[in-house]
Computed example of a mutant assay.
Amino acid sequence: MNSVAPGQARISIIGAGPGGLTCARILQRLGVAVTVHDRAPSADARNQGGTLDLHADNGQIALREAGLLEEFFKLARPEGQEMRQIDLTSTITSHKVPEADELFKPEIDRGQLRDLLLYSLQPGTVHWGQALDTISGPADGPRQLHFADGTTIETDLVIGADGAFSRVRPAVSPAVPQYTGVSFLEAWFSDVENRHPDIAELVGLGGAHAADGNRALFAQRNSGNHIRVYIIQRVPVDWISQGGLTTDDTDGIRALLLDEYAHWSPRLRRMITDNDGPYVDRPIFALPVPHTWEHNPTVTLLGDAAHLMPPLGVGVNLAMLDASELALALADSATVDDAIRTYEKTMLPRSTETAKILEGGAEHLLSADIPDFGDDNDAQP
């Protein structure tokens, strides 16, 4: 089968995260029809995660192509670029404060970014409650998408923007994410200026990091007077169940953590004891390095589906840059096949280079030096 022109193609994006939505927005802005399918039953079905930064040299480039950069700056928090390093006695040992006009990587809540992109799309673009099961059909198309709800659709291009455990990835690559040996446990703090003033004062307006080489705490200010704390440890992936607990056993997990962090100051340990609600288990996975695949004329990947890396400030930024470049390639190419080749010619070398730099980088999260926590890691699409 000859590859179809993008303007006549049925284009299906799997995953309504920042990458998938950015790609859809730019395609629609360029007059190319697209449909997005997401497993969540609705736009508000799950929490979108914490805060992240968008860099001027990748994420902001994508938003400019999407025509949303001005709206982004209305929502972003430049003050969130503040970073504090704290020792185990709760003393601030390093304090980076952004300049008043610093806009290189301002923070924005993931939910705010998702909504900015989602509600810029034409109504009905996103089909909720459609969890992809398998892809069938010949490599040169058309492809059939089989969803868990029993529906099947035919399409000319499948774009996998469905995150770490992508259901699109097996169509081009046998690679699966591997546990890095480092795990996050997320704790939430609400109305912090009133309910948790000591933690609010310690964290400041951006992020605060403390570590002893084997364990760490990283706290991030979110909008709406919220703080999220990531309790970071080098542990087995099933450390909670190995302790005879479940993720719902907040008191039991807290007791284990207090034992592990017993030598830390009481002020820092409040980030473990005073959280509002249960913990969220977020083990850190990464794809093998390098992760590449043989060209396929009807399937490609972007973001974590293509290059899952440790959460060191690149995940969403690279996903959005991927999305922008793929959308522009589709708008400028004679065929879908040509567009995929153009996109992957740039994306695969870039992601390989970055992944090599960050390989093993999960260990940096435990270092007493300040890592780049520009991107939280939800380990899910």
Rank of each mutant, 00 (worst) to 15 (best):
D57Q: 15
A131W: 04
D87P: 06
L52Y: 13
D38Y: 03
F73C: 00
K105I: 03
G59R: 02
A40D: 15
Q112N: 14
P18C: 12
R114H: 12
L88K: 10
G19E: 00
Q130C: 08
T125V: 13
D53A: 06
E82W: 05
T51M: 03
R110P: 02
D109F: 01
D109T: 05
Q81W: 09
I11S: 02
A16K: 01
H55K: 13
G49F: 05
V34S: 03
R46L: 15
L118E: 04
L116G: 00
F104D: 09
I13P: 00
R46D: 07
G80K: 07
H37Q: 06
P6E: 12
E102C: 14
L69E: 02
T91R: 12
C23Q: 11
H127G: 12
L88D: 05
S42H: 12
R10P: 05
A45T: 11
R25Y: 11
L75C: 02
D38W: 01
Q48I: 11
D57N: 13
G31L: 15
I14A: 09
P6N: 14
L68H: 03
L69M: 05
Q8E: 14
Q130V: 10
A66H: 07
D57W: 14
L117K: 01
G111D: 07
E79G: 03
W128S: 04
K74S: 09
I13S: 01
I86Y: 06
G17S: 11
S90N: 08
R29M: 15
G31P: 12
A40E: 08
P78H: 07
L63E: 06
I26V: 13
G111V: 11
H95I: 07
P18F: 02
G7M: 15
Q8F: 13
P106R: 01
R110L: 02
V34P: 02
L30V: 05
